[in-house]
């Protein structure tokens, strides 16, 4: 019950935050002069009509209510004006989503097991050379920006060794996205995204596990006759997972936002590229939708992490006084 109340409260707060940011964004965008439409004749009239329907020229507050109404009632975020001319913004957005989700899910599938395994290994070998080796690697991989790996991988694997294509294979349908060839063409991007994530997981797992391994109940477990392996798997790992698991869940939500730079380097037709394009082309309808998306993802990731703490760890009572 506490948890339920807590979730409701957090959701309410999140909605308020989201709404506030959106209002500010909307007002700031509307304060800008309208961009000239780069088409002529009939098409230009269409845009003009669309703009009138959305209340351009009216007071900003009124425009906001029209905007809100059309978004909530019809899910209509407007049409592209300077890019994807005339097509529905949300439609294009949905088209771009699979690529981003796909590459990030692959990357998570790849990095979670490796990160956890390395972290556990380093924790078990604490202060031996294996631990130092892993920790040094983690330090390097956490720090170096992902685009540096991207260059290295692209140069070595795609250009020199020619193992993978330079860019992602273009996809039309969902089965295209899930095909083997697409996967192969995505490997460089997945690798570049994964190094940093793996290092992050490793560092976190190692820190948590070393802490648990030194606690008293581990000694108890050994005293009652468990082998080191049994004690580690049954007691230490389970306890260490309590903080690690929410982090993984948070990452899973966070990855939807993808990596702008990796998408642009490997030509992945995802939302990140769309976002950058909307900024450079000054298409405000796209910009509003994508900003809303990114704001929402950020907020949602935070909430999911907090709530999953409460669900996973019986010691934490969310919202209890």
């Amino acid at each position: 019950m506490y948890l339920f109340k807590y979730i409701l409260k957090r959701l309410g707060l999140m909605l308020i935050t989201f709404f506030t940011i959106m209002v500010v964004c909307f007002v700031l965008i509307k304060l800008l002069p309208l961009p000239n439409v780069k088409v002529f004749g009939q098409d230009s009239n269409i845009i003009q009509m669309r703009r009138e329907a959305l209340g351009y020229g009216k007071p900003i507050l009124e425009q906001f209510f029209i905007f809100l109404k059309s978004v909530i009632v019809r899910g209509d975020w407007g049409v592209g004006e300077n890019m994807y001319f005339g097509s529905d913004v949300s439609e294009i957005f949905v088209q771009k989503l699979p690529a981003t989700i796909l590459v990030n899910i692959y990357s998570m599938l790849f990095s979670v097991p490796i990160g956890l395994a390395l972290g556990i290994y380093a924790a078990l070998k604490k202060n031996k050379w294996q631990d130092h080796f892993v920790s040094t690697g983690v330090m390097i991989f956490v720090s170096v920006p992902s685009y540096v790996y991207a260059f290295l991988i692209q140069y070595i694997f795609c250009f020199k060794l020619k193992w993978f294509p330079f860019l992602m294979q273009p996809c039309e349908t969902l089965s295209d996205y899930l095909s083997w060839a697409t996967f192969v063409s995505l490997i460089p991007a997945i690798l570049s995204l994964s190094f940093g994530t793996i290092a992050g997981f490793t560092r976190y797992t190692r820190a948590e596990l070393t802490e648990v391994l030194t606690s008293d109940f581990m000694l108890l477990a050994r005293t009652k006759g468990l082998t080191k392996g049994q004690a580690t798997v049954r007691h230490a790992l389970r306890n260490a997972m309590v903080p690690i698991f929410p982090m993984i869940i948070g990452q899973f939500v966070g990855i939807l936002s993808g990596s702008l730079i990796i998408e642009s380097i490997f030509g992945i037709p995802g939302v990140g590229g769309l976002y950058v394009q909307s900024i450079t082309a000054k298409d405000y309808n796209f910009f509003m939708l994508l900003s809303a998306f990114y704001i929402f993802i950020g907020l949602a990731a935070g909430i999911v992490v907090d709530i999953s703490y409460g669900i996973i760890d019986p010691r934490i009572r969310m919202g209890a006084r």
Binding site: T17, T20, I29, L32, S257, I279, F287, S291, Y294
Partner: peptide
Amino acid sequence: ILGNVPFMVVVTLFKL
């Protein structure tokens, strides 16, 4: 609230 605005949005709005 301020901290939840994605950095890209901030940069873009300032830039515009």
